[in-house]
Each structure stands twice: as C-alpha cells, then as structure tokens.
C-alpha cells in the first residue's frame, strides 16, 4: 500500500519526484529543504524564480523544486543564470550547485558573475569532494585527504570560497552549514530578497563519499559541523577551513552596488542621449 503523502510544502516541491536520489543523511536534502522553506516563509512568487543548477549530486536540486528550473551542463549554471537574469529582470535565478561545479570547472564563470554583480542567489553545497563521480578530491578538499584520485593524500591547497567570492565583488557572502539550518534558511531568505550577486557556501556532509573515506557516520559528520563551526565576524580571508581547527561561519559581506541589469539600463539611457 502506498502511503498518502501529506506534506506542508507540497506546493513548493515536485512531490511526484520524491523520494529524491540523494543518499541517507546527505546534506543536500537539508539545503533543498532550507531553500523551499525560505520561499514558503517569504511567500515568494514562485513564477518569478528560476532554479538553475550544474551537474553533480548538488545539481539534481533543481529537479525537485516547483519553480521553473534548468539542469544545465557541468560548471555552467552561472552563465545560464546570467542569460536569464539579464533577459528578464523580473526573474530571480537561484543557482544551487556543488563546490566542484562552481569552483573547478565553473570557477571562471563564478568570479565573473560576481564581478558583474548579476542579480542572482548562488547556494554552493560544499561537501569537499566530487560526490557524484565517487568522492575524488576537488578544489575544496583539505590537504592530505585521501580520496580515490589522491591515494597518497591530497597535495593541493584548497580555496577559501568566501574569500574568493568576496574579492570578486559579491554583494552578499555567507557561510553556513546544514546543521545550522535556521541560520541557513534565514540567509537564503536574505539572499532571495537582496538585489545583487549573493553567495552562500553551505558546508554539507557527503555521507557516502567523504564520510566513508573519513570513517564517519552521517551523525558523526553532523556532530562535527555542530562542534567545530563557530559563528564569528572576521575578514573572509581569515575564514580558512583546515582539518582539526575551528571553522568560522556567518555573514562576511553585505553591501549594496548597482546590479548588471541596472547598469545595462543606464547604458540604454546613455546611448540614446
């Protein structure tokens, strides 16, 4: 007998597609939940949102939201969203994608979208690896981590995402975790209403990939986020993530600047004068 699913966010989700594909305890479900809860609490007009994602486990998020949604190619969610945002300024693109998608293959687009101050919200699931392809190391993997493609330990230095995005010119930059779920949701609400390029890094357990490699259960990983992350106000360059050390979370940037659509409109005035 199939259970009658009666869920209070059913208008916000594609209920016919649940259960989703993510593993037990994967943080992506919590990120998606925070996003739809934020839309629900804001009573946001769902016809004015396009949820865009790249490829990866995180990239599947766009397929579960009851908004217009586009699952694009690996790394390119931001230029797609730029095309949307500049074509129809009534629409807020919300990009949900992974650390690999946004900072490895798509890193160039990210800094340029931030530099242009395209009006969009980017929610980056940082699970410290390429989850979908089997937990290989990526641009956020800490030094010395053993992964299937770094069997002797990772020899590369990870990016500090909030520092990178801040210096590229984003108008809102925050870092939360899926354990800090109410702060995360409030941050998403802020990003949804902000006019400008907003970026939220969400530390999120990849339970089957990163978790297994580290011999941690999903609950261990969540406890770890609870115990090592501290909300503090620091300069983004200081908010590095290193194993065994305190991880700083919170809001790093919140400024106002004209958006790309604003300056395009100014350009039209200038060119016809």
């Amino acid at each position: 007998m199939t259970e009658q699913i009666d869920y209070y966010l059913e208008d916000y989700l594609r209920m016919d597609r649940l259960p989703h594909i993510w593993c037990a305890g994967c943080g992506l479900g919590i990120i998606l939940k925070s996003y739809v809860q934020a839309l629900y609490e804001l009573e946001y007009d769902l016809d004015k949102i396009v949820t865009v994602s790249g490829i990866g486990c995180a990239g599947r998020a766009s397929g579960y939201v009851n908004t217009d949604a586009f699952h694009t190619t690996h790394g390119r969610a931001l230029p797609f969203a730029t095309g949307i945002s500049t074509s129809n300024t009534d629409i807020k693109p919300v990009v949900i994608s992974g650390d690999g998608d946004l900072f490895a293959i798509g890193g160039n687009h990210l800094i340029h979208a931030a530099r242009r101050n395209i009006n969009m919200l980017v929610i980056c699931s940082n699970n410290f690896n390429y989850g979908m392809t089997g937990a290989q190391y990526g641009p956020t993997t800490p030094r010395d981590m053993r992964t299937p493609t770094s069997p002797y330990g990772n020899i590369e230095n990870p990016f500090n995402l909030v520092s990178l995005v801040s210096s590229a010119g984003a108008t809102m930059v925050s870092r939360w975790t899926v354990f800090h779920v109410n702060q995360l949701k409030n941050s998403i609400k802020k990003g949804l209403t902000k006019n400008g390029f907003s970026f939220i890094e969400v530390l999120s357990p990849c339970t089957t990939g990163y978790g297994r490699l580290n011999k941690m259960s999903p609950i261990d990983m969540m406890r770890d986020l609870r115990d090592t992350c501290k909300i503090r106000k620091v300069h983004p360059t200081e908010a590095t993530i290193e194993p065994g050390k305190e991880v700083i979370i919170g809001d790093f940037v919140d400024i106002e600047k004209p958006t790309y659509a604003d300056v395009l409109d100014q350009l039209t005035r200038r060119s016809t004068e």
Partner: peptide, 23 residues
Amino acid sequence: RFVQFEDEIGAIASVIGASFSGM
C-alpha cells in the same frame, strides 16, 4: 541586451538561458 562574456562557453550558455527566458 549585449553581454561580452568571459569565454565562448559562457556566451553560448547565457544565450540558451536568454532564449529559455523568451528572448
């Protein structure tokens, strides 16, 4: 709307996004 992109990958991606937005 004219956007000079950071590369051709971004340019075509944004064109597809714009077309899906009705342009």
